[in-house]
Structure formats: C-alpha cells, structure tokens
Design a binder for these strands. Structure first.
Length: 819
RNA sequence: GCAGAGGUAGCAAAGCGGUCAAAUGCGAGGGACUCAAGAUCCCUUCCUUCAGUAGGUUCGGAGGUUCGAAUCCUCCCCUCUGCACCA
C-alpha cells in the first residue's frame, strides 16, 4: 500500500465531481440554505500559492460540512479582476490588461480545481466583464438619483506610484496601501464621491447586531467610523456665527481661545489686517511640509488679531490659526479649553493664554493640569455644582434656547472617493457637456464599455486620448460632449458581488430579488482581517443602499465573519512571491496529494492563527492518511464493541461542534484518535463509513475513494452527516481507555526494571476485575508492549499467578505479573 | 502615546479554577521487522525514584485571591497588530 498514488485518486474525483456537477445548486424552497463565501481574489499573474489554498480550504471545509448536514449550500467563486497590476503589466508589454487578466483567471481556475474546492463554477463572476460592471454603473446611477453621488474639487490622496488618487481607507500611515514605501501626496482635483457618510450612523450602530463577527473587526470599524457625540456651538466673529464642534460642551466656560484650521478655506476672512502677513507666512510654511511629517509636528499657531464672542458669557476670545486643526472634520474650528485638554493646555502654555479651570474632580484630589476626567463644574455661572455628564445636557439646552448651539453627532468617516485616473476599472457613466455640465449616462445606454482596441503606451490613462471612447454626444441636448475617463475604485466591484452570485447570468436586472432573498445574506464569510476598514465597510454600505432601493430586505451582508490567519513560509515570513518563500500546491500535490496538504494546513493550529509551513510537518499527515488507506484495504467486517461505538459517537458529536466553531485543528486530533481505536480491533462497516463521512470535509478526494472502497455508491461529499446517537455514548469507556493506557505504561515500566535486575522476561500476566475484562484486549496489549500478554479475570480459578499479584488489582488498576 | 492580542516543555500548538507534568503533531532517542537501508509498527522524550500506579520543580517575571491556579486579580518585562493630534 505504500505505493498508493493519492495524486491520481484526486484527479479521478475532481473529474467525477465536475462531470456530475456535484456542487452546482439551485434555489430550493424546501431546503434550508447556507451561503458560504470566501473573499474572491484578484487574479494575479503569479497564480495561487499554499497561502491562498489555506484560505479557501477553511471555507471549503465549512461548505462541505454544511452540505452534508443537509443544507442547500451555495459556495461560489469569482474574480475581482479589475486592478492595477494587470494594467501595469499591459503598459510594460504594450498589450491589453484584458489579456493578462483572462490568462491569470484561467490559471486560477485550473489551480482551484486542483485543490478540490467545492465551488459551483456555474456561478462564477468576473468583475472586468461588461455584463458585470454594467451593474456597477447601474448602481452608480441609482446612487446619483438618490443624491448619494457628488463631484467635488478637494484635496485628495495621490499615489505617485499608482498614478491615481486613493480613498481615505487606502492610505495607511501616510503611505499607499499597495506601496508601503510610497508617500501619498495631496492634490486638489475634481473627483467623484459616494456619500457613505449618509450611512455612517447606521454602519456604526449596526455593528452591535453583528454578534458573530470578530470583536477585532468591529472595534476597528467603530474606530474608523469614529462616532462622537457632542455639540456644535456658535461663536460670533465679525458679527457672523461660526460653528465649533466639541465633545465637551460642559467645559464651555473654560474656553480661553479658539483655533481655526490653517487649511480652512475661509481663514483669511477672519484675519485682522495687522496680522495678515504673519498668518500668510504661517500657512505658507505649512504647505512646504510633507503630509507625513505633519503628524509629528509640534502644535503651532498664530494669532489672527481677531476675537470671537463667547455665546454665553459674551467674553472676547482670541482666535488663532493652528496647524493641528483638521479642516475637514467638524467645522474646521475648535474651542480651546486648556484646563481640560492636553493639546489645548500645551497650546496655551506656548502662547501664554490664560487657563481657566471649570471642572474639579469629585473627591477633590490634587491633580496636575490639565484635568481631563469627569467631575463637578465650577466657575460656570449657573451651572456650578453639576456633574460633567448632566452639565453637557444643561449647557446644550441653554445654547439651544439662545439659538447659539445644538446637540450634534460627528463622524470621522469621510465620503468615499471613487474616481481613479486609470484605465483598468469600471468606467464612470458620466458625460460632460459644455452646456449641460456633468450628465449621467441614461440607463438604457449602459454599459459604458471599456474599449478593447486601445494602445497602452504611456503611464497615464489611455482613455484620455482615445477618441472613439472620449467623444460622444450629450444625452440631454445631443450636443458635443466628452466622456468621463476616470474609472471606479475596484472596491466598488467587490461591494456587491455576493449578490450577483445569486443570479450571475441575469441580463435584465442586477439580480433577481427572489433569488437573492433565498440565498442571502451570507451565512459564513471567510477572509483576511486586512479588509476591516476597506471592503468590509464598503460592502456593508452597499447592502444598506440596496435595501433602501428595495432590492433586498436585509441590512447586513454577512451574518458571520471569520478571519483566517496567514500562512507563513518556512522562513517565518508572510508567504509571497516577491519574498521567494512560496510553497506551491502543485509541487506538494505531486509529492503527497493535495488532501494531505489540506489536512496538514488545518492540523497545524487554530485557523484564525498565523501558521508556519513546515516541510517535515506534512509528513505526519501523510503517514496518517497512508495508515487509513492500509486499514481500509484490509478491513474485515465485524461488529463494533460498545467501547468503539461510544467513541465514534463522542467523536461525531465533538467534531460537529468543532467544525461549526472553526476549531478544525481539534477536530483532526479527534479523528486521528478515533482511527487509532479502530486500528486495534474489528469494527462494523457502518461505523467505518461514519468515520469516512466525518473525515470527508477535510480530505474530500480521499474520502470519496475510501467511500467507494468501502462499497458505497454515490459521493461521500453528498452523503449525510452522521447523526449522533447519545444513547451509545458512555463516559465509562473513556475512563476504561485511560486505564488501559496506564496499564500499558505500567507494564513497560515493570518490564524495564525486571529486565535490568533479572535479565530477559518472557510473559506478562494482567489481572483485571471481572467486569473490566472486555476492555483489555490481550492481542492489542501484546502488540503495544512488544511481548506476549495474558489477561485474566481476578476471579479466574485457572489463572497463572505465582506471586499473588492478582490480589493487588483494583478497578481501573489491574494487577501485573511478569515472568 | 492610546487601544487590542499574545508569551505553555527542543520546535509548533491545545488547555483557560481541581480529573494537568499539561492533548496532538514535528523533531530527537530506543526497540521490533530486515542481510542492510528505507518504509512500517511499538515505546520513551522536565528531573529523581522504582516490580508499577511515588516524589520534586514547571506553563514570561514578581506578588495576591483560593482548600486548590498554566487557568482568576494586581504590578512589571517582552512580542505582535491596529489607531496615531477627529477637538
């Protein structure tokens, strides 16, 4: 059996699955559905490595498990096939990105099939195909209708390496998300935005409903959306009301200065003529500072020469321009309360501004300024003695009466900038007419197709100079017009793909409502945590929008989310082609078979942890599977002992649990342990079949083979998950098993001593309590200790017991005599 | 700086108040089989002890709670991952 060719077996079953369309599914109202999805990949030219395999394997095990449990499982796969790498490759080769993309996809599919992933390939979506991206454009138009799309000239993040702008979410510590060494520059451009902020509150609050999402992701999203409750307070400057946002309206009486952002568009209106030069110098200085250094800069400001009027006291408050105030958060102006805010304190110290304490800690403890905690109000006119929390309410109320302030909620989340100055993306369906301005392309004219016959020569978007695309007529006035050449961020494509899987070939609609209603929402979504504030926010936003359009009835796309860990290469680094530490599935497959690799990947550690690939480790999984095959091919039908039955059903129960909770590593250990019990005795065929079935999600191909070897018809993949028979589970067998193990180690221990003292021993006699007799199998014991073992009941009259060791026997602890 | 996650035997990794000297895999050592190697199978793998089921010292470090702690609490050290002036 050692020459068994797993790889060959796998090919056979891959073909059978494909030929019989085993994983294709249709809506079936009579069956409960289960939507299992792994984040679809960008089809890179370098193909799949073991790291990808690990990811898809985790989802596949779950999908297979659910399928066997009787669910109608939709488990689709597709490709997020727009994106820069293909375009860059095209520029380099003066070719078309479509060519690279489609070759890469073909390669990916091939590789995925070799992994034996149970996808319904009839549902494949590819985002670069017009029949997909036309619906991106359609959604854009719908958002446009609903006022969720706008165009604005604004400072945007520009990656010089990508030659395009980036969304806020794509800037990571001042660097591009794709180029960790490239600093993002700020440019001022006219760009299209999606008003995700309209959904900010819901995106924030609904996180509380996502009980089965990892806390980590929810925390990151909360952080990113950044909801803060506070007040908007009007300060009068030059007889005009200027809004200031604060989360601490309770400290209003401690305000001793105001700061307006140096980037504020209306800054100069507020600067006194005497200070103009100074302020201009200050602003100029800031412009020369790189974005990335801005973070680390000291808080600086310059007096504008102007004063604001305090809304409640009427006091004159100096106004500064500051480098640390964000122009696009709140109102771009803040109030300075140096006694109760670290930054304000430092600022006040630096510019010798007075400090007025208005909150004292409850227990009168001595504190170092500034005091930022809660307490009781002082020096706050009629509000003295109030707790900070109630003071907030009262002061806001007072402001509301005077119409000088109101309760307000602010978000850190910004609108989603979707314009990209690149070719390989969904064209934004907008036409610029000299008379009518920006006009959306009428729905009937969709899709706006990306041209195939276009030359890739330079670094910039070739659409800019490609007349057949560029030149068009205005849908409104029929006059001369030109098309928008910017394309959409690729995250647009991935924001709703899970819905398209439900009805991937629909030419009339984005998807059929009933089909989507049957399959959605996603029951189990598997993917990396790096998307916490990107894809995972965007697709929640799209889902809410679709709900508001009436296309679906749910507001959250995925009920459960699982973040898998990364597979690290043998060198302990993230597996990637550029690092040169990739392990290729096809290489491993050839040597061991892919099921061996799949089993190994989930044996190493809990799937949510980063795991380390090791070339030796996989041998363990290989040995195990070889043993299983040897066993299966020599299996003689028998009757299972009560002990085996108990263990089998315990295992089924636990493995079911462990798959459900993604503790695959523990499930594998249990399966191995069950098999070891099998090895020592004869078992019923039906019990072996149950074992094959619970093994099946982990080693799908080999299970099919075992299933067939065992004389079964059909596919193990489609067989029913074994039911647990609680009546057969009896813990006493587990204890018995432990007692046997202990006995073996005792025997060996005694043997060692005896061999040392008296020379070679021959036979071992074990005396057990009469009711324990069935637990002690002489044959197995002999094999385990490597010497003949005889088992007697203590009550057996004919037992060989020259030293009366049987009298030492206790339940669970047999007497032992060595001859 | 703030917020999270984590530090377990040679390595990886379970365990998260008693049944824990701590599952499992790898590695290492010994044995069986073989002319031999490989494969396979069995055993051992913190220390000591021994015709057995015993004792000792362990789960980043130091304290504490408890009849009892790898598991709970406090402080400290280290590693990783997010957010970095959002008022």
């Amino acid at each position: 059996m050692s020459d068994i060719d797993f790889s060959k077996i796998e090919k056979k079953w891959q073909k059978a699955w494909h030929d019989k369309k085993v994983f294709e599914v249709k809506e079936d109202k009579k069956k409960p559905k289960q939507y299992v999805l792994e984040m679809f990949p960008y089809p890179s030219g370098s193909g799949l490595h073991m790291g990808h395999a690990h990811n898809y394997n985790i989802g596949d095990i779950y999908a297979r498990f659910k399928r066997m449990q009787g669910f109608n499982v939709i488990h689709p796969m597709g490709f997020d096939s727009f994106g820069l790498p293909a375009e860059n490759a095209a520029i380099k080769a003066k070719s078309h990105p479509k060519k690279f993309t489609e070759e890469a996809i073909a390669n990916f599919i091939e590789q995925m099939k070799e992994l034996g992933l149970s996808y319904d390939w009839s549902r494949k979506v590819e985002t670069h195909k017009p029949d997909y991206y036309r619906w991106d454009q359609w959604v854009f138009l719908k958002m446009y209708e609903k006022g969720l799309v706008y165009r604005k000239k604004s400072p945007v993040n520009w990656c010089p390496e990508c030659n395009t702008v980036l969304a806020n979410e794509q800037v990571i510590s001042g660097k591009c998300w794709r180029h960790e060494d490239t600093s993002v520059e700020i440019k001022h451009l006219e760009q299209w935005f999606l008003k995700i902020t309209d959904y900010a509150d819901e995106l924030y609050e609904d996180l509380n409903k996502l009980d089965d999402w990892p806390e980590l992701i929810k925390r990151l999203q909360r952080n990113w959306i950044g909801k803060s409750e506070g007040a908007e307070i009007d300060f009068i400057i030059n007889k005009e009301k200027w809004k200031v946002f604060t989360t601490r309206p309770d400290t209003l009486f401690g305000v001793t200065f105001l700061v307006i952002s140096a980037q504020h568009p209306r800054l100069m209106e507020l600067v006194d003529s005497k200070q103009k030069v100074k302020v201009q110098e200050f602003v100029k200085k800031l412009h020369s500072v790189k974005e990335e250094d801005l973070d680390r800069m000291e808080k600086e400001g310059v007096f504008t020469g102007n004063y604001a009027q305090h809304p409640l006291t009427g006091e004159k408050i100096p106004l500064y321009a500051g480098n640390f105030v964000l122009a696009d958060y709140g109102s771009g102006m803040v109030m300075g309360v140096p006694a109760h805010d670290e930054r304000d304190y430092a600022f006040a110290k630096k510019y010798q501004i007075s400090i007025t304490s208005v909150v004292k800690p409850e227990n009168n403890e001595k504190i170092n300024a500034p005091y930022t905690g809660p307490g009781v109000l002082i020096h706050s006119e009629g509000f003295d003695g109030l707790q900070t929390a109630e003071a907030k309410e009262h002061i806001i109320k007072a402001l509301e009466i005077k119409k000088l302030g109101r309760k307000v909620i602010n978000f850190r989340l910004r609108d989603w900038l979707i314009s990209r100055q690149r070719f390989w993306g969904t064209p934004i369906p907008i036409i610029y007419c000299e008379k009518c301005g920006a006009v959306p392309v009428p729905e009937k004219d969709l899709p706006v197709i990306l041209p195939d016959k276009i030359q890739f020569s330079g670094v910039s978007n070739p659409l800019l100079t490609y007349k057949p695309f560029l030149e068009t007529t205005c849908p409104r006035c029929k006059g001369k017009a030109r098309r928008e050449t910017d394309t959409m961020d690729t995250f647009v494509n991935s924001s709703w793909y899970f819905l398209r899987y439900c009805d991937p070939h629909n030419e009339k609609k984005i998807f059929d409502k009933d089909k989507a209603a049957y399959w959605c929402p996603i029951d189990m979504y598997v993917g990396g945590k790096e998307h916490a504030c990107l894809h995972l926010i965007y697709f929640r936003f799209y889902t809410k929008f679709f709900r508001d359009l009436g296309l679906i009835t749910f507001g959250e796309p995925a009920k459960r989310l699982f973040n898998q860990g990364f597979l690290l290469g043998p060198d302990g680094e993230r597996m990637s082609k550029s690092r040169g530490n990739v392990v290729l599935p096809e290489v491993i497959s050839k040597k061991y078979g892919i099921d061996v690799a799949r089993l190994f990947l989930v044996s190493i550690a809990s799937p949510d942890k980063d795991i380390l690939w090791s070339d030796e480790g996989i041998d363990g999984s290989f040995r195990f599977l070889k043993r299983v095959f040897t066993y299966a091919s020599t299996l003689k039908e028998g009757k299972s002992s009560k002990k085996i039955e108990s263990k089998l059903h315990t295992t089924i129960k636990k493995v079911t649990d462990e798959i459900e909770s993604f503790r695959y590593n523990l499930a594998v250990i249990r399966l191995r342990s069950l098999f070891e019990s099998f090895e020592h005795e004869s078992i019923a065929k039906s019990d072996f079949n149950a074992f094959i079935r619970i093994l099946s999600p982990f080693i799908p191909h080999l299970s099919e083979e075992l299933w067939q070897m065992s004389g079964n018809k059909g596919f193990a993949s489609l067989s029913a998950w074994p039911a647990v028979d609680e009546k057969k589970i009896d813990e006493k067998f587990e204890q018995a098993e432990k007692a046997v193990e202990k006995t073996i180690s005792d025997i060996l221990n005694i043997l060692r001593i005896v061999d040392e003292k008296k020379g070679k021993s021959n036979k071992i006699y074990v005396y057990v309590m009469p009711f324990e007799l069935e637990n002690y199998n002489a044959e197995e014991l002999s094999k385990r200790v490597g010497k003949p073992v005889m088992v007697f009941s203590v009550s057996d009259k004919k037992k060989h017991d020259p030293e009366g060791k049987s009298s030492k026997a206790k339940p669970g602890k047999p007497g032992i005599y060595v001859d």
